[in-house]
Simulated scan of single mutants.
Amino acid sequence: MIRSMTAFAAGERGTPWGVLGCELRSVNHRFLEIGLRLGEDLRALEPVLRERIAARIQRGKLELAMRLRAPEGAATLAVNEALLEQLGALAQRLDARFPRLQVEFAQLLQLPGVLQAPSADGEALQAEALALLDQVLDEFIAAREREGAKLAAAIAERVDAVERIVGQVRGLIPAIREGQRAKLAARLADLPHPVEPGRAEQELVLWLQKLDVDEELDRLGSHIAELRRILGKGEPAGRRLDFLLQEFNREANTLGSKSVDARTSAAAVELKVLIDQIREQVQNIE
């Protein structure tokens, strides 16, 4: 199923060490870019969390926030007795050399490593974090797919409009050719000197060849079929669709440049408008 690149999902999971909370959000981006905001207890899990996300998401700028919230009333800090004893002994030695040096107990507690939070089992915490991430990813992808279905419907509606315009232009071509033939014949008739019939016919053929848009219309028809095929496959297709729309735009520009009739000129403009609208939707697709 086609997926949007914008989505949000969140979840929580109880663990022996507290409540794990996770939020995942994303916006449009050409490639996959993952930003992580992790609590201190979870920083070591960054590589595995990135790997798990990249295995299921292909495009978008994602931001993952995960925190471990200790249960209420639980002891959250413990004193590193061995380190505190070493620091105390060091303070006494320094006091003998620097009598005016004063070290307060509160200052010792502020030194790195003196106060420690109870540490969770690394492997068990990783398993809990990945289980929560999988749960959030399921909701996240489901949200992307719901939004993607809306985008696909909007694109399909505009593709139908493109197809109608292509059919209308194709129906106008015979009358336009006859009109150009009549105009050229009238101009030749107004010349002071007659032109050989064979020469006149040759010039007419060359002129009509320059204005011929059958190939452009055929290619537009092929592009329409390919776009529908891509939408039907349901795979990540944002980049492929973006490239295909460049081809759509090229054919519409050529159609406009070859136009000698107000109706085909208006059709070319309308095609460009529809193609731009489709491109806006495609920018949101994974």
Rank of each mutant, 00 (worst) to 15 (best):
T15E: 02
P16A: 06
P16E: 03
P16F: 00
W17K: 01
W17N: 00
L24M: 06
R30M: 05
E33T: 09
L42P: 00
R43G: 05
L45Y: 07
V48F: 02
L49D: 07
R52E: 13
A54D: 10
A54H: 05
R56N: 04
I57N: 03
Q58E: 11
G60P: 05
A70T: 12
G73K: 08
A74S: 15
L77T: 10
A78L: 14
V79D: 04
N80W: 06
E85M: 06
G88R: 15
L90W: 08
R93C: 02
L94N: 10
R97H: 11
F98V: 15
L101K: 12
V103G: 05
F105G: 06
F105I: 10
L108N: 01
Q110S: 14
L111G: 03
A117H: 09
A124Q: 15
A124S: 14
A129Y: 00
L132P: 03
L132G: 10
V136G: 09
E139Y: 00
F140Y: 07
F140A: 11
A142Q: 10
A143N: 05
R146G: 12
V162L: 15
V169P: 09
A175D: 13
R177W: 02
K183Q: 12
L184F: 11
A185Y: 07
A186H: 08
L188C: 08
A189V: 07
H193L: 13
P194H: 11
E196K: 12
G198F: 04
E203D: 14
W207K: 08
L208F: 11
K210C: 06
V213D: 01
E216Y: 07
R219F: 04
A225G: 13
E226T: 15
E226M: 11
L231N: 03
G232V: 04
R239S: 10
L241T: 00
F248P: 01
A252H: 00
N253R: 10
L255E: 00
L271M: 15
L271P: 09
I275W: 02
I275P: 01
D276N: 10
N284A: 13
